[in-house]
């Protein structure tokens, strides 16, 4: 039993395991409410409650928490306006929800024993697909077949168009993959690294006085990595949001 406990504590992959909390099965597919679902709900509840509670007073002069909400609002609004212009502002709720969801999911994942929703490729892929489908549906609805114009950048000589267009098509199709893998891989790798270094601390610490001395280095590393992971948590949410804005720019403005 004890070895098992040690094994769990040192296993860097264990934190990504999904376990069924409420098993649900429909038509042979597993729709169980899992720990992943629980942390999605927790993410949404945390973000929603924070944004809601911090703004209940509707202060003309904002308090600290209200300032945070306002800053995130203006941060995303500015980002979207800069990338996609005022025409892109109709997608503001979408970009803001995506940013808040990814940010809070990443940050919640930093708590020990918490599950990191965004460390699963399927979650980030669904979010990326949501973005790309929005871009495609809105793009075709607005520009019709002219939306294909985004595959031929302006200023490219007609002779080069047959070469450039396939490259643009591939680049467009790889967007959901790059968008989702970037977030997923960052969160996964960061959490594994953190766990591995933290594991060194406990393993070395079990070796007596010399081990404890030697454990100082991985301990410092773990502390530093924790800081880095908080940065990555924010940065990846930011990257996800700004890429969403840039892709939406294609949908709003068509050929560039």
């Amino acid at each position: 039993m004890e070895e098992q406990g040690v094994a769990v504590a040192n296993d860097p992959i264990h934190q990504f395991q999904i376990s069924r909390l409420v098993p649900i099965e429909v038509g042979g597919l597993d729709f169980s409410f899992t720990n992943s679902s629980l942390f999605m709900a927790l993410t949404v509840a945390t973000a929603g409650a924070f944004l809601f509670m911090s703004t209940t007073s509707r202060g003309l002069i904002p308090g600290r928490l209200q300032s945070v909400s306002e800053m995130s609002y203006e941060f995303i609004a500015g980002m979207l306006r800069d990338s996609a212009g005022s025409g892109g502002m109709k997608f503001f709720p979408m970009v803001f929800s995506l940013f808040m969801f990814v940010l809070v999911a990443n940050l919640l994942g930093m708590f020990p024993y918490f599950f990191t929703v965004t460390s699963h490729i399927i979650v980030t892929f669904v979010l990326a697909l949501f973005v790309i489908l929005t871009v495609m549906i809105y793009g075709f609805a607005k520009h019709g077949l002219g939306f294909f114009g985004i595959f031929v950048p302006s200023g490219v000589p007609a002779a080069l168009a047959p070469v450039v267009a396939p490259i643009e098509v591939i680049s467009f199709l790889s967007r959901p993959i790059s968008l989702s893998v970037r977030l997923f891989a960052n969160m996964l790798a960061g959490h594994i690294t953190l766990k591995v270094f933290a594991g060194f601390v406990t393993s070395l610490g079990a070796l007596g006085a010399w081990g404890i001395g030697g454990a100082i280095l991985p301990l410092l590393m773990t502390v530093a990595l924790t800081g880095l992971e908080f940065l990555v948590a924010f940065l990846q949410a930011y990257v996800f949001a700004i890429l969403t804005c840039m892709y939406l720019n294609d949908a709003v403005h068509g050929a560039h």
């Binding site: 729709f31 169980s32 992943s36 679902s37 999605m40 709900a41 949404v44 979010l127 949501f130």
Partner: peptide
């Protein structure tokens, strides 16, 4: 767990989006 994650993400993120 893909179907479960997709379903719950859709539900929960959808609610989040609506609320925001």
């Amino acid at each position: 767990f893909f179907p479960s994650q997709i379903l719950w993400l859709a539900i929960i993120f959808g609610l989040f989006y609506l609320f925001l």
